[in-house]
């Protein structure tokens, strides 16, 4: 609405996210190039903050928003399928499930369509780590009693399932909360740590498939359906670019900048072998059940999980 006749694109991401913002620009660039979209772009949460992006889009304040899936998966639980812990065995398989052309993604769009939502494509931000200060996490018992900062519902349920207490906290207070022991650690992807310089305080990071989220481009289904075919194709192609090239850029930044920065700061990164992973998988299986209950559609839930595991 703000630009009268120009489509409005909004995101809470700022240009300072070196790993995420390039993907946003690739997405918008491709949509402009192929579909002639003359986007009125509002980055940095200027028009709609992180909590209002999707509500604002459903109201028609914005037409396309780029948003982290974990912010909206409480309202659109089917999105949680790709956030659940220990679904795919390796990152490559998980990545194939995230492909907009995959069976899982198509199922997600079918379900979202009932709520007038459509995901065009998204960047996979990598599996989430459990970051701690005092002691490394090697077994689920190590999580017991820890106050862990989380940002979304599935993450929160995972921390609960492992015996910890999820804490919701604004990201601006994160550094001080960790430094003073208000919280004992956090669950997040690599970018959250580096963007707030948390590697200076954190001592350990345990890497496993504790969860994952994507940074997606969403639009309203009715808006999408009202566009001429060529513009719909352009948006779909832009979504594929966001997934393919955006994720590639993100992985590149993580490997060549973020991981070295975290290691250089002295954070010990812990990998778990198959035997050590098993108890975590068992503990986290209750999260899958919790998510099935939230979705309230056992058939769709099973289909989504099967499609991810077979991707």
């Amino acid at each position: 609405a703000p630009g009268a006749h120009r489509p409005v694109a909004a995101t809470y991401l700022t240009t300072s996210y070196d790993d995420l913002y390039p993907g946003v620009e690739m997405f918008l660039g491709k949509a402009r190039e192929l579909g002639g979209f003359d986007f009125d772009v509002f980055p940095s949460g200027q028009l709609l903050g992180a909590e209002e992006l999707v509500p604002g889009m459903l109201h028609g304040v914005a037409d396309v928003v780029v948003q982290t899936s974990s912010y909206v998966s409480s309202s659109f639980p089917i999105l949680g399928a790709l956030e659940l812990p220990f679904t795919a065995h390796d990152f490559a398989r998980y990545l194939r499930a995230c492909d907009p052309a995959s069976g899982a993604s198509r199922l997600i769009n079918e379900e979202l369509g009932r709520q007038n939502m459509r995901v065009l494509g998204g960047m996979a931000t990598g599996f989430e780590y459990l970051w701690t200060i005092d002691k490394p996490i090697r077994t689920p018992e190590d999580v017991r009693g820890l106050r862990m900062r989380v940002a979304g519902e599935i993450e929160g349920e995972t921390v609960k399932a492992l015996g910890g207490a999820p804490v919701f906290l604004g990201s601006a207070e994160l550094y001080q909360a960790l430094e003073r022991g208000t919280i004992d650690g956090m669950m997040s992807y690599l970018g959250t740590v580096v963007s707030r310089d948390l590697q200076e305080i954190l001592r350990y990071g345990t890497a496993a498939h504790f969860g994952a989220y994507t940074v997606d481009a969403y639009c309203r289904s009715d808006w999408y359906d009202s566009l001429p075919g060529q513009q719909r194709d352009a948006l779909d192609e832009a979504g594929r670019v966001l997934f393919r090239d955006g994720t590639a850029k993100l992985i590149d930044v993580h490997e060549h900048e973020y991981l070295p920065a975290v290691r250089k700061a002295g954070v010990e990164l812990i990998e778990l072998d198959e035997a050590r992973l098993r108890p975590f998988q068992d503990a986290a299986s209750s999260v899958h059940q919790r998510w099935r209950d939230l979705l309230g559609d056992p058939v769709a839930a099973q289909r989504a999980l099967d499609l991810i595991r077979e991707a």
Binding site: A1, P2, L47, L48, G60
Partner: peptide, 23 residues
Amino acid sequence: CLSGPDGLKLVPLAMGAQLQEYA
């Protein structure tokens, strides 16, 4: 003036968002 009656949809969103800032 900037975006017509549709622009007013921002009013409850803006007020609600700002007043629910945890700070």
